[in-house]
């Protein structure tokens, strides 16, 4: 949440600066299977966000002593590339923020993947933020869900989400970078629409009870749109399996 210093106007003439309505999402496109070597992969283009998700596994656990005889171990790694932001050159590798995001992303997939089918193995989920534009964590996990499905790893649902914020007193969906920096609140979430469960939930800002309730409702509404894009990506890759072949 930003300070008032240098704060740009975020709502002009009842609209967001980008021209979007309050519950509109930015342009969103997902491409499944963009990498050859990874077992599964996906690229997400969401606003200016460009995030690559790659999945390896199930495979042998390394280091070996981490092996769980009951289920597959999920390793999630979210990192921002040093060149990914509008600001100065970042430091490469994980920082405190990205370690925390990696942790909550890992919890999503511990729930989502049928981990008990693959005891003693490890599934690595890499999320590389190549260009950041606000909402990277929900975009990264949304892409990772597609990458897992592309890898043929059994999951309970496609999971996805959106971040709900509050700018100049108004609750809006899918914050961009400025809205995130200068807004009054941010609630990123990942959900399973099938079960109605929230699998990643973070919140930062100041919201009343009514606002929390509204934000949750906006999350599920946004997720429906995001899920369609995930299905579209997978359909594009797998539908050719169904169509009549060309000689």
């Amino acid at each position: 949440m930003g300070s008032s210093a240098n704060k740009p106007q975020l709502i002009v003439d009842g609209k967001r600066v980008s021209g979007r309505g309050f519950s509109d999402l930015r342009n969103l496109k997902i491409t499944a299977g963009v990498l050859k070597k990874a077992n599964g992969s996906a690229m997400i283009e969401w606003g200016k966000n460009r995030i690559l998700a790659a999945v390896y596994g199930p495979r042998e656990v390394f280091p070996k002593h981490m092996t769980d005889p009951r289920k597959a171990l999920i390793n999630a790694r979210y990192v921002m590339a040093p060149f990914s932001s509008m600001e100065e050159h970042g430091r490469s590798g994980p920082n405190r923020r990205s370690i925390e995001i990696s942790k909550v992303a890992k919890h999503v997939f511990e729930n989502n993947v049928l981990v008990h089918m693959f005891p003693k193995t490890m599934i690595n989920i890499n999320m590389d933020v190549l260009q950041s534009d606000g909402g990277t964590r929900v975009a990264a996990v949304t892409a990772a869900s597609v990458a897992l499905v592309d890898a043929g790893i059994p999951v309970r649902d496609l999971v996805q989400g959106v971040s709900i914020g509050k700018i100049e007193g108004t609750q809006v969906s899918d914050l961009d970078k400025d809205e995130d920096n200068y807004g009054e609140s941010d609630m990123p979430a990942i959900v399973s629409l099938r079960t109605g469960e929230v699998l990643l939930y973070q919140m930062d800002g100041k919201l009343t009870r009514v606002e929390v309730d509204t934000a949750l409702s906006m999350i599920f509404e946004g997720a429906k749109i995001v899920r369609e894009k995930q299905v579209e990506a997978l359909r594009a890759k797998y539908e050719s399996n169904l169509s009549e072949a060309r000689e």
């Binding site: 499905v149 309970r156 649902d157 399996n241 169904l242």
Partner: peptide
Amino acid sequence: EKRIVFPG
């Protein structure tokens, strides 16, 4: 019809 189904 044959149809393609997605997780969930």
